[in-house]
Design a protein around this nucleic acid. Structure first.
Length: 826
RNA sequence: GCGGACGUGGCGGAACUGGCAGACGCGCUGGACUUAGGAUCCAGUGGGUUUCCCGUGUGGGUUCGACUCCCACCGUCCGCACCA
């Protein structure tokens, strides 16, 4: 055994050996129960950052731990390889996105290997590979086939100077990220997935996700935003038209004093055309439509009168129709009935434009009509000014009013969702081509399955403006119609990269499958993902889209699970000086440097030790040194005891141990229990590691306090073996080296997780705290199996206790076996 | 505004079901070894007026007993944000 711990040599040696011996190969079939451990795959930016190190270290501990517990573990890794940075690099540095991406992948893969992560690299996937995106296209076609994919005009971010559409992430504070000019909104035809068809199930099935953080479920719930109410029709006065509104407060319908339409509402043009109001309204509409979503949502509420009126269906009243900047076409029906007395937004709007405010809900004890309103009253009460419904409690009135409307075919009960359909087309190059062609004769035609993949051409020129090179690529665009064989043009939009990442967890189950996106049987064997680990920034989009896809696949019979991820762990950020690491702040610590200086084991250990996984982690160079010191200390312990333990026999008659030897063995087995529970039930790796540190400290104490001749070599060896086994998921290289030094030829990572000896962990004597009126006055050492009465008696006899209670009356005595005695005195 | 999380030594964090507050690590202090120490080892380390008292953001409550449960407030962070 080497005298000094040399991480660089050890780590390289074992990484090479693991690779040669294919230690982390995952068989599809075996007798063992399955466990699918997955970490969110990275975008291949070129370099690993500390967030990756944290994410993948956590996953590696879980995977290694489960493997040792006897599971057949699937632990794969791949690349979310399409996306904008590759394209930006192409424009800026003249390199091709494909080359740039593949170089980055190879570099990051090297870095991941340096961390000693237990991936089965034979299952590696990259979403930009035709063998992968072929199936992304196939999934698109399935959605198209099932009517879950459609094209409609939508508002997009348009940079007038670049002459191109921008993705949302390219718009920084309302300006183009490349040329800084102001972004406009334009109406273009866009592809959508009908995720809203799944809104209800996506919401309801959150209940099934017991292993998800409450926080993420709440975020998804809010995002889906279910609200119950009614859809009500208002006839337009003097025209054969109707305006439909959605409201959650049908009980306030007698309080409607105006109607507001979204600027994009189709009826706006109809009701103003040819009137004196046309010019003013059209100008207002144009102004609002040109605003970005951000500008629009932060602007003050504004509206203009259209000159038209509609009729309140319950009382026939004439109501003015306005157009307002705060009404969204996408939500509900794009029209809102204004009830200023009972809605704060309406109240503000009505006050600004001097519209009437009429209370229709009366709270108990206050007369809203007499006292007037300073703000909207949104609480409960009974109806007033509401015709036949006067006097009804408003909750009851909701149902009654809707019933009446339904009877007269003027409205109906309706559930609305905030969730909108998923806009998936991107006017970008580096993404999965949408497998659609446009034929003059046949119209929009999907590319037949057997003609997939639609290959993303690589012979392209990049325009410095950022315009997608596909638009001008004639050999790509010009094709023949699959239906009629005539001339046709390809769709030049590519898919949102969130689509690529919404099914990759299925591809891992059979990454080389050529007859479908995955082998159904294999997917059934592995799914669901038992543990998914990643950043909380994906709490909504990625996780919601993956759930949507899984439900869609379930409906098609392609998978048997309803939910893809059984348990979810959202790891916290890695901070330095209290802030997220970023180039602009100059507080970045590179994993490469740390590995270079201390080795991967130290880096992993620190990142797992410094905080529990879900919390943010403050980077500390001193802390890293501390972890490195611990590994050195462990190494030295082995080195100094090596000759004693290398041939030590295994322990016989553990029950006969006494004194310090028994104590060391007790600590050893208590540590097994503690570490197992910390990893298994709580993912508290920080406390698991501190328990191992305590065990190492205990062995040091044993070594230093017990003369060599008196040491029990078997107990000592057991303690050291257990230390290595317990530490092996955290620090895989040093433990492998020490395990080999102990004389084993098989990898420590193929060993079973140690079991603790129930008998060994029992303490024969325990320290009991003795309190008087809840304050600690003494501690006593008593046999663990002492009776409650004996314990109370013994506690009372203590001189310190006698002193503390002298002259006072003992009211009662509480004894908690194994913990404390509390004497209550007066 | 709504929703969620969190406030514990000089620092990162422990304390799992209400039962010894501060495990483990960092830092700091003193000592040993040493030509040397930013290596290693040993001892100490919440505060104070030190037989005892105080102490987990603040104030109250429940309890024999509260970091833990309840109420109110203060502060920090995150998510959503005109959703009718």
């Amino acid at each position: 055994m080497q005298e000094r711990y040399n991480p660089k040599n050890i780590e390289q040696k074992w990484q090479k050996k693991w690779e040669e011996e294919n230690v982390y190969y995952t068989p599809d079939y075996s007798e063992r129960p399955k466990y699918y451990c997955l970490e969110m795959f990275p975008y291949p930016s070129g370099k690993l950052h500390m967030g990756h190190v944290r994410n993948y270290s956590i996953g590696d501990v879980v995977a290694r731990f489960k493997t040792m517990q006897g599971y057949r573990v699937l632990h794969p890794m791949g690349w979310d390889a399409f996306g904008l940075p590759a394209e930006n690099a192409a424009i800026k540095h003249g390199v091709h996105p494909a080359g740039w991406t593949w170089d980055n992948i190879s570099n990051m893969k090297k870095q991941l290997k340096q961390l000693g992560l237990s991936y089965d690299w034979e299952r590696e996937v990259a979403t930009c590979h035709p063998d992968y995106y072929r199936w992304t296209q196939w999934i698109f076609l399935k959605l198209y086939e099932q009517g879950k994919c459609y094209k409609k005009t939508a508002s997009v971010n348009w940079c007038p100077s670049c002459g191109t559409v921008l993705a949302n992430e390219q718009v920084i504070d309302g300006a183009c990220e490349r040329c800084d000019s102001k972004v406009e909104q334009r109406q273009l035809e866009q592809w959508f997935f009908r995720i809203t068809d799944y809104a209800e199930r996506l919401l309801d099935d959150l209940k099934l996700l017991e292993g998800w953080p409450e926080k993420v479920k709440v975020m998804q719930e809010n995002w889906i935003g279910r609200s119950e109410g009614a859809e009500i029709k208002f006839k337009v006065s003097g025209l054969d038209e109707e305006i439909e509104v959605f409201t959650t407060r049908p009980d306030t319908i007698y309080g409607v004093t105006y109607m507001v339409l979204a600027p994009e509402h189709p009826l706006v043009q109809t009701i103003i055309s040819g009137t004196e109001y046309e010019e003013e309204v059209a100008a207002f509409v144009k102004k609002v439509r040109n605003m970005t979503e951000l500008a629009r949502t932060t602007a003050e509420k504004e509206g203009v009168f259209t000159g038209a009126h509609c009729i309140n269906p319950v009382n026939g009243e004439l109501i003015p129709i306005l157009v307002g900047n705060y009404v969204l076409l996408e939500y509900g029906t794009g029209a809102v009935m204004g009830v200023p007395a009972h809605d704060q937004r309406d109240f503000e709007f009505a006050t600004k434009y001097n519209l009437p405010i009429r209370p229709v809900i009366q709270p108990e004890g206050i007369d809203l009509e007499k006292e007037g309103l300073e703000k909207a009253y949104t609480g409960e009460g009974v109806l007033i000014n509401s015709g036949e419904f006067n006097g009804l409690p408003n909750k009851k009135a909701m149902g009654e009013i809707v019933k009446k409307l339904e009877k007269n075919n003027l409205g109906r009960r309706k559930v609305n969702y905030r969730l909108r359909d998923w806009l998936i087309s991107r006017q970008r190059y580096w993404g999965t081509p949408i497998p659609i062609v446009y034929c003059k004769k046949c119209g929009t035609v999907p590319v037949p399955e057997d003609q997939l993949p639609v290959i993303l051409p690589t012979d392209v020129e990049f325009d410095p403006s950022g315009k997608s090179p596909l638009v001008d690529n004639d050999s790509f665009i010009n094709t023949t119609c699959p239906k009629c064989g005539g001339e046709a043009k390809r769709e030049t939009d590519t898919m949102d990269t969130f689509i690529d990442s919404s099914w990759y967890f299925l591809r891992y189950t059979s990454p080389k499958e050529i007859n479908g996106p995955w082998d159904k049987q294999k997917a059934e064997r592995w799914m669901p993902v038992d543990q998914y680990i990643g950043g909380v920034e994906h709490a909504i989009l990625h996780l919601l889209y993956s759930r949507f896809f899984t439900k869609f696949f379930h409906d098609l019979g392609l998978v048997n699970v309803r939910e893809p991820f059984k348990n979810l762990l959202t790891q916290g950020m890695v901070l330095k000086d209290g802030a997220k690491m970023s180039k602009s702040k100059g507080n970045v610590v590179s994993p490469e440097e740390i590995i270079q200086k201390y080795g991967a084991d130290t880096a992993r250990l620190f990142i797992l030790f410094a905080a529990p996984p879900e919390r943010d982690l403050e980077w500390s160079d001193r802390g890293v040194e501390g972890c490195n010191r611990f590994l050195n200390r462990l190494w030295r312990l082995y080195y100094t005891l090596y000759d004693e333990i290398k041939d030590a026999p295994s322990l016989e008659n553990p029950g006969k141990l006494v004194g310090v030897h028994e104590e060391l063995r007790r600590i050893t087995h208590q540590t097994i229990k503690k570490v197992t529970e910390d990893i298994e039930s709580r993912f508290n790796f920080n406390t698991a590691i501190s328990a191992i540190m305590e065990l190492v400290n205990a062995v040091y104490t044993y070594r230093d306090k017990v003369p060599q001749a008196e040491r029990n070599k078997s107990v000592l060896r057991e303690a050291l073996e257990i230390t290595v086994l317990l530490l092996s998921p955290f620090a895989p290289h040093i433990t492998e080296e020490l395990w080999q030094a102990l004389g084993y030829s098989e990898s420590v990572h193929r060993q079973s997780w140690p079991q603790y000896d129930e008998k060994a962990i029992i303490e024969k004597e325990v320290t009991i705290v003795v309190q008087v009126n809840g304050k600690v006055r003494d501690r006593i050492l008593v046999p663990a199996d002492i009776s409650t009465d004996e314990l109370k008696k013994h506690a009372l006899e203590q001189p310190k206790i006698q002193k503390a209670i002298s002259g006072k009356q003992v009211v009662k005595t509480i004894a908690v076996p194994g913990k404390l005695v509390n004497i209550v005195v007066k």
